[in-house]
């Protein structure tokens, strides 16, 4: 690991000031940052540890919005029974992420900014990685068969997959991200936070230098109550999703009034499947329509060798998640 300066400011203003410096990186739980520093992928000049900013801790389950501080821990949020009652998708997606140790260390603000697990990004022995080394190429495109490449949203420059779980729930339910930076505060729709790799995969979000995520909020809507996060993975715990779905439904009689679908383990960024949602609206939710919605969600998929199976797997996972969500609606099975 390269030597670095370490700062632990005690005000948000001081943190922003320190984080805006060239070569500075923000540190919260450190579960991704420290890992990547050890293997030489990140070599910051300075780490700005924001864990002294206690005003960014905690979370609140309100009647109109659910608000999370950026420093709330994955574990405390995932364990909250009031939240799991109001919005099961939000606790399930946290529960199924990482390991208990990691969930106790990791903070929500860092979780949504989690780095890809693409092996070509993580192993500096590969000279080609446009994300790590802009302009060097992409070794993944002619590489081995792995589960770790995006089949949605990738470009000729980068097929790195966004690996997180919770972000799928946030993007499905129109979450917003609050930030503070050198230019002041702003509120960003979660769906706009991450950007597609395009020709510039090194740019992952719209956050500006020195801009801190301070909070995340989710509007309370009926579909949140009948929501579910389904994660398919080769082992029962501590594995990234081969495919996952964050869904919620609101029924009106036999028909779907509102459907929310986001898919994980398959895309470059947190991925909302709006066309699949539209397909379900105002129609019945049956196993057949749920499977069709799953197929629609993957209509534009471009798999690499070894990830072709994810089109079918992902569709089945969406369908399975929808059936569970339906069972959680009033009058559901």
């Amino acid at each position: 690991m390269r030597n670095f300066a370490y700062h632990r400011p005690d005000t948000i203003a001081a943190a922003i000031d320190a984080a805006r410096a060239e070569g500075a990186q923000v540190l919260a739980g450190g579960t991704t940052m420290v890992d990547l520093m050890k293997i030489g992928v990140f070599e910051p000049d300075a780490l700005i540890d924001i864990t002294a900013l206690s005003e960014l801790e905690g979370f609140e389950v309100g009647s109109d919005r659910i608000r999370f501080g950026a420093l709330a821990r994955m574990a405390e949020v995932g364990d909250d029974t009031k939240l799991s009652d109001a919005a099961p998708v939000l606790t399930e997606a946290l529960w199924k992420a990482a390991s208990p140790q990691l969930r106790h260390a990791a903070r929500l603000g860092g979780n949504i900014l989690q780095q890809t697990r693409c092996p070509y990004f993580r192993d500096t022995a590969y000279s080609q990685c446009n994300k790590r080394n802009p302009g060097s190429g992409c070794a993944a495109l002619d590489g081995g068969e792995t589960n770790l490449h995006a089949i949605l949203g990738g470009s000729d420059a980068c097929v790195a997959m966004y690996p997180g779980d919770w972000a799928q729930a946030l993007v499905a339910f129109d979450a917003e991200v609050k930030t503070q930076g050198p230019g002041g505060s702003r509120t960003i729709p979660f769906a706009d936070l991450h950007v597609l790799p395009g020709d510039t995969p090194e740019i992952e979000t719209i956050l500006k230098r020195g801009e801190l995520v301070t909070g995340i909020s989710v509007p309370v809507i009926p579909a949140l109550k009948a929501s579910h996060y389904l994660k398919a993975r080769d082992r029962e715990s501590y594995a990234f999703a081969s495919a996952s779905a964050a869904v919620g439904v609101e029924m009106e009689g036999e028909n779907v009034r509102d459907a929310r679908i986001a898919i994980g383990g398959v895309a470059s960024v947190p991925w909302r499947a709006r066309e699949a949602e539209e397909f379900l609206k105002d129609g019945p939710l049956t196993e057949e329509t749920a499977r069709e919605a799953g197929r629609i969600a993957f209509a534009d998929a471009r798999p690499l060798k070894g990830s072709e199976y994810k089109i079918k797997l992902g569709a089945d996972v969406v369908a399975g998640a929808l059936m569970t969500a339906k069972s959680r609606t009033t009058g559901g099975e």
């Binding site: 070509y120 192993d123 590489g143 080769d234």
Partner: peptide, 23 residues
């Protein structure tokens, strides 16, 4: 897992080299 063109192993960590967990 193997990167075929470069004959190099890909999942050289125990997050991605899967072994059973308690669950």
């Amino acid at each position: 897992e193997v990167d075929k063109p470069r004959a190099r192993y890909l999942n050289t960590n125990i997050a991605e080299y899967l072994v059973p967990v308690n669950a």
